[in-house]
Design a protein around this nucleic acid. Structure first.
Lengths: 225, 225
DNA sequence: AATAACATTCTTGCCAACATGATTGTTGAT
DNA sequence: ATCAACAATCATGTTGGCAAGAATGTTATT
């Protein structure tokens, strides 16, 4: 008396994408912190999908640099050491600088006005109140809108990949002494340039913003990592 | 009387990487041209590996944008339409510009002298003779050396990914009327800046070189795609 | 000839079983 | 207590089998 074998029907790809998204989220938020062990059989049971599906997900996650697969031992969430963080930041600077440039070129200057407004008094209030979660929500909106405005899916995917790897670190940088206020001024400079349709200035400002974050990280590295 | 089942032992990962490398090569050289169908069972037989191994490879290839998996129908080699080519070129400009900058910063200026020499008379001879294969070998050497000099594995992987997608197009651009000579001058400008340790100039020259290639593509698009 | 209904084919997605090899645990000898 | 030898455990990598659903092919009807 053996159980039926075979496919669970359509939507295999959807299931795989759901699992992938869930694991990406957990890894990037450090809910699955670096060093965590991931087992095919456990995840297969947890998500009610086949082991084959999990292996698919692992393939993607490893290609995105989020996990390392260890033959016969499972997979482990990658840990970025300090030098790797700076390597990722170098790439982040180039890609997000390009993103700001493309968004400025491809979108009408007026389309950024709502964000310019949002980054005025409302976000000042967030920082005054110490409500960094609200601040971060606004940063994420800016980031999303810039990516959308760039109209370049290849770039978007790469930036998302970088984001998956650095999200937890970025949060740690934002809470460092004085960082939120400095970061805000930098974001405003980016938005000003975009609002004026100045692609060179937007790119330069965004690159400066990323470098500034990296410098903050370097200054406080013993507190962050 | 059933055949034995089970693992073929160690080296599963190595087998997978070998197959992955082989398919990346075929796809990037258009030996498997865009639109080609890839079937798990066929490749499994061809490479003498399990279907699961091929599925692993497919996962990586699809994440790298080289193939698209179609549920129940196999996978197909992605075709870049013109707008996608330009999207990739935008990203390529940013990444290779960064690469030139980092290589200039991180390597001693003298370390580029052999390449400066190589891009003197020897490569002139290549172009005079119409020996574009030899020219391309030298370009590949420059590219490799720049990536190595940048000492950033994240960046290297991304640039390789872009290269996989654009390699065949790049070859088509190089043979366009007058392109090789113009390209050579641009590469020389990059090398000059690197030799002088001028990272800003190196980045700008490399970006200009990529943009120039894209402009050539736009001018001759009906001949290339 | 065109269309609808049905059958067949094709390939993936899934399940179960098992081989492999690395790691951990247990036992016996010194 | 320490070390070596052996056994057990663990998790992946592979194989064979099969369900599912989409596409293609065949047949019947108008």
């Amino acid at each position: 008396m053996t159980t039926k074998r075979g496919s669970k029907g359509a939507n295999g790809t959807k299931r795989m994408l759901d699992v992938l998204g869930a694991l990406r989220e957990r890894i990037s938020r450090h809910e699955l912190p670096p060093g965590s062990k991931l087992l095919e059989a456990e995840l297969s049971a947890e998500f009610s999908v086949s082991r084959a599906c999990i292996r698919d997900v692992f393939g993607v996650l490893s290609q995105r640099g989020l996990i390392r697969r260890i033959p016969q031992r499972g997979a482990v969430v990658e840990r970025l050491d300090l030098s790797q963080v700076f390597e990722v930041y170098e790439v982040r600077e180039a890609l997000e600088g390009l993103c700001a440039r493309l968004a400025t070129i491809k979108m009408a200057p007026e389309s950024w006005q709502d964000l310019v407004d949002l980054f005025g008094k409302p976000i000042e209030d967030d920082i005054e109140r110490g409500d960094l979660e609200a601040y971060i929500v606004k940063l994420e909106l800016l980031r999303r809108r810039t990516i959308e405005g760039a109209h370049n899916p290849v770039l978007a995917d790469m930036i998302d990949n970088i984001q998956d790897r650095t999200r937890a670190i970025i949060r740690r940088i934002i809470v460092l002494p004085g960082r939120a206020r400095i970061g805000l001024e930098e974001h405003r400079a980016v938005l000003r340039a975009m609002r004026q349709g100045d692609a060179d200035a937007a790119e330069a400002a965004k690159r400066a913003n990323i470098r500034s974050g990296a410098a903050y990280l370097k200054r406080y590295e013993s507190f962050v990592l």
